[in-house]
Design a binder for these strands. Structure first.
Length: 896
DNA sequence: TCCTCCCGCCAAGCA
DNA sequence: TGCTTGGCGGGAGGA
């Protein structure tokens, strides 16, 4: 009957009753002990016992049939039915049932008996988990705690204890249960779930999982063109993660984690894996994660040992286990993403949207005026509390990293503060690195600094505000959309805030808009920030890497800045690319930083990112001064001209650098490279930074009322008005007041070669010189240029961005202007994935851009939460709220 | 054939 | 030392 040979298969043993004593397993025996009754009764009749596992399973109650399963599910749905069933079960003579079964078993042929056994599916972990969950209320009253006795559970559910551990471990990772003692757990239900998810999301963001995913996808894509790179990938994966060995378990305050023997196995704990898996969903957009990617990331965080494919397979197995439980919890749902290489199993987050951690945010919010830094750190620590604090081991990344974070933040802050001309890290580094006007930064009006700071601060304040009242802050048609909208400002982690959403004051409608840049975009943008250049932006190098088969991937990725530079090196964007050239102080410092980091060390880069992120985040926070300067100034006409001039300089610089970049990088690209660039992670289609500057996301800031200056001044401290006043924003995105109805799209050669789709109002030019400059890209014929546009035209012509005689119109005309080679990338569906990538704001192919329907900047909720969009003629889409969604890509996901 | 994932061996670690 | 936990991977069932 069963395969003989060596070790009997698991399944064999399971059904094996004829080969008794041979299999006396420790655990099974124990279990047998727990169900002694059954065994003792049976043993005499049947063969000497022996197969602990079997007796235990076959015995109880109803046989495992679809019917019984149905009953179980029904009972699960109804406590009454359940209890009734249980009572009946108890009343039944279990021994009789057992005997009957065993007798039946004995009389049946092997095959027949096997058939009588529950099918594999009926024994699935998912179903088991359902049954397990059915035993406890989702929200148990705090007064009456539900205790879980593993022995009872295993007995009642007729499963091996081992299986229960799998379930419990995953539940534990979500803090739905916690271990009290041996064999004993406490059921918390979903009470802690929101908190847990928030914490996980935060930690996930801190860990830059999005970037890791991007990198993995990038490598995958590379493999399509270079099969030999596979080995490299593995090496890269392992080496790059050599310092990621530290895995942490995110613990919630008040929910103590006391897993036994976890110390020795924590790194590979199913709990940790589960949490990380969840994090991937929470930080990614859309919230779809393929098993493969998840496994790779998990492996990446393990030791170097995890190189072979068996490890990968093991991870996949574990992920299936976890996924089954999460599916039972309805947190995820299995789907498939179609790729060129076939369908890939993936899971889509179907759980609750994770809003900003209100607790955490509140903390920060309330502390903003007192001790921002410490608060921020504190909150982070709270979110990612280390395990076993009593042991004080350093095994918990969160702890150590947070500590480092604090230090790095302080250091950066000091540096920044000491640099009077460094308004905001982002812009500071940018400007400083500009070759044309190396000292321009010193001329940059302090007011601009305040504006920028105010912006950053505004973002943070918005975040807090959103956290406090998300719905109010960003009204959305659907609750599920809230996260999407609030995320940029609220949920959006510090890392994103560094990119700070650009606020678009809308004096007329009273509604401001923020152009929120997706994390990936943020990276691009923030490359100006020293820290960001260290980020392993995948897309970038891909282009240049393609031909470098022999290179070790990790090296390649880490060498973006160096090795790629000579090629097309894009991702790094301005800062990374120009640093070496300009050798400005800032850039040098940045370069040093980046170089100091081991190229193969992903975690270090991550940390570096965190530093910069936190720095940028902390910057505004630390700055106690209300953004009054910026807000006030923005409204003062007297200053407009000055600002225009200053910004014009900035623009000029940017443009100059942009030109350089374009000529260097964009033009030379061949089709292959372009193709490579098209590679976009399946679930996280993030355009190659070097190629495109992804679209922005206009977020109506309806909660921000436009008031007069006086009003704002009074509100500024509350961080409400600052948003509106930050009209000029950073040169990166440009900001201009405009009515939603007048929003139009133009391609903005935002830094380098990355065109940015951004909305412009007819009068934007005059109001926002920076944007106006961007408009130069459009071939619109101009109408009477105003003074500012004239100046811009002059400068732009001067630097060769526009031909002599061409004038940038004061009233920009919406246009999609293809930008050289970049445009080709767009229409391309991700290299390896069929999750079709939309292109990042798409330049050249006006027709294509719109093809992408699913904006991955959309709400984290993914497709489900997609707001109603109305397509604009230019391919952009607008939500019912006026939020502009620029199509990014189409995700083909098939649900099972 | 590949995808899923059940099953239980066996070692770490706790009581 | 016995027992609990849980990492791990073989291999079976299903698609």
């Amino acid at each position: 009957m069963r395969p003989a040979g060596g070790e009997m298969g698991a399944g064999d043993k399971e059904n094996e009753h004829s080969e008794p004593c041979k299999n006396v397993l420790k655990t099974p025996l124990k279990q047998a002990a727990t169900s002694q009754l059954v065994l003792t009764e049976r043993q005499p009749d049947c063969q000497p016992l022996t197969t602990p596992p079997k007796p235990k399973e076959t015995p109880l109650a109803d046989p495992w049939t679809p019917t019984s399963n149905l009953k179980m599910l029904i009972s699960a749905a109804s406590p009454e039915i359940r209890s009734r069933e249980q009572r009946r079960q108890l009343s039944d003579s279990s021994s009789e049932v057992l005997q009957t079964k065993h007798c039946l078993q004995e009389h049946l042929l092997g095959d027949e008996y096997e058939k009588s056994q529950p099918s594999r599916k009926e024994k699935s972990l998912g179903l088991l988990c359902h049954k397990f969950l059915a035993r406890y209320p989702d929200y148990p009253s705090p007064s009456q705690k539900s205790y879980i006795c593993l022995d009872e559970v295993t007995e009642e559910l007729h499963v091996e204890r081992r299986r229960i551990y799998d379930i419990v471990n995953v539940l534990e990772s979500l803090h739905m249960v916690s271990r009290l003692a041996r064999n004993r757990y406490v059921w918390h239900g979903s009470h802690n779930l929101p908190q847990t998810l928030q914490a996980l999301k935060k930690v996930g963001e801190e860990n830059k999982y999005i970037q890791q995913i991007q990198m993995i996808k990038k490598r995958e894509y590379e493999h399509e063109f270079d099969p030999d790179a596979e080995r490299n990938e593995e090496m890269a994966s392992s080496s790059g993660s050599s310092e990621q060995s530290e895995m942490s378990f995110v613990e919630l305050p008040g929910v103590e984690f006391r897993a036994a023997s976890v110390n020795g196995r924590k790194y590979k704990s199913l709990r940790v894996m589960s949490q990380k898996f969840v994090m991937l969903f929470l930080v990614s957009t859309p919230q779809i994660v393929s098993l493969e990617v998840a496994a790779k990331i998990l492996i990446g965080e393990d030791q170097l040992e995890d190189l072979d494919k068996s490890k990968f397979k093991t991870k996949i197995r574990r992920l299936y286990d976890i996924a089954n439980v999460l599916s039972s919890l309805k947190l995820i749902k299995k789907v498939h993403v179609t790729e060129e290489r076939g369908r890939k199993p993936a899971f889509k987050w179907t759980g609750p949207e994770v809003l900003p951690n209100t607790q955490d945010t509140k903390l920060e919010a309330t502390s903003t005026t007192s001790s921002p830094i410490s608060e921020s750190v504190t909150s982070k620590e709270q979110c990612s509390k280390a395990l076993f604090p009593s042991k004080g081991k350093q095994n918990f990344t969160r702890h150590s990293s947070l500590i480092k974070l604090v230090k790095s933040i302080e250091n950066d802050r000091r540096k920044i503060q000491s640099a009077p001309t460094t308004p905001v890290k982002i812009s500071a580094s940018t400007y400083q690195s500009l070759p044309v006007f190396p000292n321009t930064i010193s001329q940059f009006p302090a007011i601009t600094k305040h504006q920028l700071e105010g912006q950053a601060k505004t973002a943070e304040e918005m975040q807090m505000k959103c956290a406090l009242s998300p719905a109010e802050a960003v009204p959305t048609p659907e609750p599920s959309q809230q996260p999407a909208l609030s995320q940029p400002l609220g949920v959006c982690p510090a890392s994103h805030s560094s990119v700070s959403p650009v606020i678009l004051p809308q004096p007329q409608s009273g509604v401001s808009y923020a152009i929120y840049l997706h994390p990936s975009q943020a990276h691009t943008v923030t490359t100006y920030s020293p820290g960001f250049m260290l980020q392993p932006l995948p897309c970038a190098n891909v282009t240049g890497i393609k031909s470098n088969n022999s290179k070790v991937l990790n090296k390649i990725t880490t060498e973006e800045g160096d090795t790629q530079r000579g090629l097309d090196e894009p991702p790094k964007s301005l800062a990374a690319e120009e640093r070496p050239e300009t050798k400005s102080e800032t850039s040098q410092r940045c370069l040093k930083r980046s170089q100091a980091l081991p190229e193969t060390n992903l975690i270090k880069r991550r940390k570096s990112d965190e530093e910069s992120l936190d720095t940028s985040l902390g910057e505004p926070t630390k700055n106690e001064k209300p953004p009054s300067n910026s807000s006030q100034t923005n409204h003062e006409m007297d200053n407009v001209q000055e600002e225009i001039q200053n910004e014009t300089k900035t623009v000029d610089q940017n443009m100059a650098s942009c030109c350089d970049q374009c000529t260097k990088e964009t033009i030379p690209e061949d089709e292959d490279k372009i193709k490579t660039k098209q590679d976009i992670p399946v679930a996280f289609a993030i355009p190659a930074p070097e190629t495109f500057f992804p679209s922005g996301y206009l977020i109506p800031l309806t909660h921000c009322t436009h008031g007069n200056k006086a009003e704002c001044s009074t509100k500024e401290k509350a961080g409400v008005c600052s948003l509106q006043h930050t009209a000029y924003s950073s040169p990166i995105t440009g900001v201009i007041p405009m009515p939603a109805s007048e929003l139009k799209t133009v391609n903005i050669p935002a830094f380098h070669i990355t065109p940015l789709n951004i909305m412009l109002s007819p009068n934007s030019i005059a109001a926002a010189p920076v944007l106006s400059n961007s408009c130069l890209n459009s071939s619109s014929t101009s109408s009477a240029p105003n003074p500012s546009s004239s100046a811009l035209n002059f400068m732009l012509q001067h630097i060769g961005l526009i031909p002599a005689g061409v004038q940038i119109p004061a009233n920009p005309v919406l246009q999609h202007v293809p930008i050289s080679s970049q445009s080709e990338n767009i229409s391309h569906s991700s290299g390896s994935t069929n999750v079709q990538e939309g292109k990042p704001s798409a330049p050249k192919e006006p027709q294509e851009p719109q093809a992408a329907t699913e904006n991955f900047f959309r709400t984290p909720g993914g497709p489900n939460t997609e707001p109603a969009l109305s397509a604009n003629s230019d391919g952009t889409q607008r939500t019912s709220q006026g939020t502009l969604c620029i199509p990014q890509r189409k995700l083909e996901v098939s649900e099972d």
